[in-house]
Amino acid sequence: MSATVDVLAVLKEKFPSATPRPSLDLPAVNLPVGDVPAALKFLRDEQGFDFLVDLTAIDWAEGVAPRFTVVYHLLSTVRHDYIRVATDCPSDESPAVASVVSLWAGANWHEREVYDMFGITFTGHPDLRRILMWDGYPYFPLRKEFPLAGIDTPLPDAEIMAETGARVIAAPMAGGPFVAAPGEINLTEAEPRAKDESWNERRAKPDA
C-alpha cells in the first residue's frame, strides 16, 4: 500500500486540484474534468499505470448536482497496483468529458457504451456511436429516470414494424423481476419466475 500512497501524494503534488475520494478498496482520487486527460497521461507515462481496466459512469439521479460522474480504473502491470480516478461532469443537461482514446485504444468501446447508456459525450472520440442500443434510440437506459421495463418506441426497422405491427413496448413486469431460486434441488422449482405471481398481464395487480 505504501507505493500507492506515494502515487496519490505525487499526483496531488503534480495536480493540486486533486482531492482524495472515499474508497473501501482501491486508492481513489477526484479530479476536475479539465485535468483528467493530463492526469491520466501522467499516470500512464510516469507512474506505470499502463492498463485501463474499466471506464464507466454514475448517475446520481435527477436534481443532484453534479449529476454525472465518470470513473476510470487503472492497473499498473509493473507495480501491480490499481488506482481509481473519478471526475464530475460540469453540465447536467449535456454532460461531456474529454475522450481518452488517444491514451488507450481500448477506451473506444467503453466510451461508446457510456455514451449509449448515460448520454455522456466524449469530446475528441473518433467514432462516438451507440454500441448496444440501435442508432436513433431516443433514450439513455441507465439514467435513473429511465424505467427498467423500457418506454414504448418504434422498432429500429420501420419496414419490419409495418409488416408485423410490433413495437418496442414497456415490458410487462407482472410481479417481476424474474429471478431463479438459487440452491434449489428441484429444477422445476428453480426456474426463473416472478416473486409475486398473484398478478400478470391479464389479471391486474391487486391494490396494496
Binding site: P147, I160, A171, A174, P192
Partner: peptide
C-alpha cells in the same frame, strides 16, 4: 416470452414478429 429479461432491450416473445408453431419451455 422474453423469459426473465423483462427489460427495455428484449423482445417479449418472438411470436410478436414471426408466427410460431411450437413453443418449448425451459431455461
Amino acid at each position: 416470452s422474453g423469459g426473465m429479461y423483462r427489460s427495455y432491450a428484449t423482445l417479449q416473445g418472438v411470436d410478436r414478429i414471426v408466427p410460431v408453431d411450437v413453443y418449448i419451455s425451459g431455461c
